[in-house]
Simulated assay, not measured.
Amino acid sequence: MSEQIHRLVYFSRNAMPGTEDEIVAGVQQILASSRSNNARAGVTGALLFNSGCFAQVLEGPTPAVTETFERIQWDERHSEVLVLEYAPWLPVPSPTGRCPSSAPTGPISSCSATSP
């Protein structure tokens, strides 16, 4: 049996003090450490940022997503963290029964549809 994959989507307020340049440097640091940590944990996702807010999608094995999000909640650079979605990741087959050509890539990209 394969390990359960979950998707977590959250929003938070930017709590990083400093000038615009210092905040950009802080976000670059977040990206660098996240890429390393997430690859090691088997977590994929996307981070959106503007000067006031973060929004992120995390996908991966349930324990890894949970541990990653716990670190984010304790990170002082985030405030007012709000979970928008936390649910099992389910591939959606196309009507033809084949994986769509735009299927995501990465450790959770397998499409469970069968070819006709």
Rank of each mutant, 00 (worst) to 15 (best):
S34C: 11
H78L: 13
I30H: 06
V83C: 07
R7Q: 15
D21M: 07
L8E: 04
T105P: 07
S115K: 05
Y86P: 04
V9G: 00
E3W: 09
N38H: 00
D75G: 06
P100I: 02
A32P: 04
S79M: 12
S109R: 07
L48E: 11
S2A: 15
P61I: 04
V9Q: 00
F49A: 07
E80P: 03
E59N: 06
L58K: 08
P104G: 06
L58T: 06
M1C: 11
D21G: 03
T62H: 13
F54H: 05
A87P: 12
W89P: 01
N14I: 05
N38Y: 02
V65D: 02
P88A: 05
F49T: 07
P91Y: 00
Y86T: 08
A103Q: 08
R98S: 10
R35Q: 11
S101I: 10
P104Y: 08
V24R: 00
P104W: 08
C111W: 02
S51N: 14
N14C: 10
F54V: 01
A64D: 02
R40F: 13
A103G: 04
P93Q: 11
R13P: 03
V43L: 01
S110M: 02
N50K: 14
P88Y: 00
W74L: 15
Y86D: 04
G45A: 09
V92G: 07
P17L: 12
V43H: 02
P93K: 06
M16F: 08
T62C: 08
N14M: 08
F69E: 09
W74A: 13
R98L: 12
E20Q: 10
R71Q: 15
S36Y: 08
W74D: 09
S110R: 07
